[in-house]
């Protein structure tokens, strides 16, 4: 049912397009709180978790720059650039291949993700999460945002999103979308990952909405991808190793 209203909404949004800002690029900073992440590792004792939290509490969270290109009907989420860099810019490293492409009108998903030593391509139909809307409001980058929550059944994460009511596009960062406005902040699993929009600029971007071709990619569907992730988490926990060094939290 949500799908129909979404379609309708897209129609409206398209009609309103020239009056409103519905096309552009949002930049996000993606921060990982490792001390909190470690509390999710089942093989660590409470003592080890406390030790880690106390030892590293002054360390800055790990931060990455992400980019979301959106139109009313599609979006592409990726790293903001090919390489990550230290805060002073003096050191760079390679960013893994990561492209999450969604077509909201055609209900299509194309995800390219380098993980577990391979590059995977997920092509499937779009399945949107079931959102719950809360009562909190908050301003992010001058946009009045409302809160929505959902649950990721594969990774078992609580998700909290803040969406802008004045940017009527269903797009959002990572794999979260389907709200009445652009998601400007995403909180994955009670603050372990915080994605915060740092800049939203409106401009025609339809030409940038292309998934780059990847060689030697392994194709899976949504179900296969979920199984891969679940299996990896279970195996690594058994090996007493942190699964999230090698997959996205």
């Amino acid at each position: 049912m949500l799908r129909y209203t979404l379609l309708f909404f897209i129609c409206c949004a398209t009609l309103l397009a020239h009056a409103q800002n519905t096309e552009g690029v949002a930049l996000y900073s993606r921060k990982t709180d490792y001390a909190k992440l470690l509390t999710k590792l089942t093989y660590l004792s409470q003592e080890q978790k406390d030790r880690y939290a106390n030892t590293w509490k002054n360390d800055e969270d790990w931060s990455e720059k992400m980019k979301l290109v959106f139109t009313p009907t599609a979006s592409l989420y990726s790293f903001a650039s090919e390489s990550g860099e230290s805060p002073d810019g003096k050191y760079t490293w390679r960013n893994k291949d990561l492209f999450f492409y969604r077509e909201y009108d055609k209900e299509q998903v194309v995800d390219v993700e380098e993980m577990l030593g391979k590059t995977y391509v997920v092509e499937d139909t779009l399945r949107l999460p079931k959102w719950k809307i809360g009562n909190q409001v908050r301003e992010i980058l001058g946009h009045m945002c409302l809160v929505a929550t959902t649950f990721d059944p594969v990774k078992q994460h609580n998700i909290k999103a803040w969406f802008a009511q004045d940017i009527p596009v269903p797009a959002g960062p990572e794999k979260y979308a389907g709200l009445p406005g652009l998601i400007l902040e995403l909180d994955v699993d009670e603050g372990i990952i915080i994605l915060e929009a740092t800049n939203v600029s409106f401009k025609p971007v339809a030409a940038d909405l292309k998934v780059p071709k990847t060689k030697k990619a392994k194709k899976v569907d949504e179900k296969g991808y979920a199984a891969l992730i679940k299996n990896h988490i279970a195996e690594q926990m058994k090996e007493q190793q942190n699964p999230y060094w090698t997959i996205r939290y």
């Binding site: 909404f9 809307i133 009527p168």
Partner: peptide
């Protein structure tokens, strides 16, 4: 509070 329909 699950969102079922929305519009503008």
């Amino acid at each position: 509070s699950t969102l079922t329909n929305y519009g503008r």
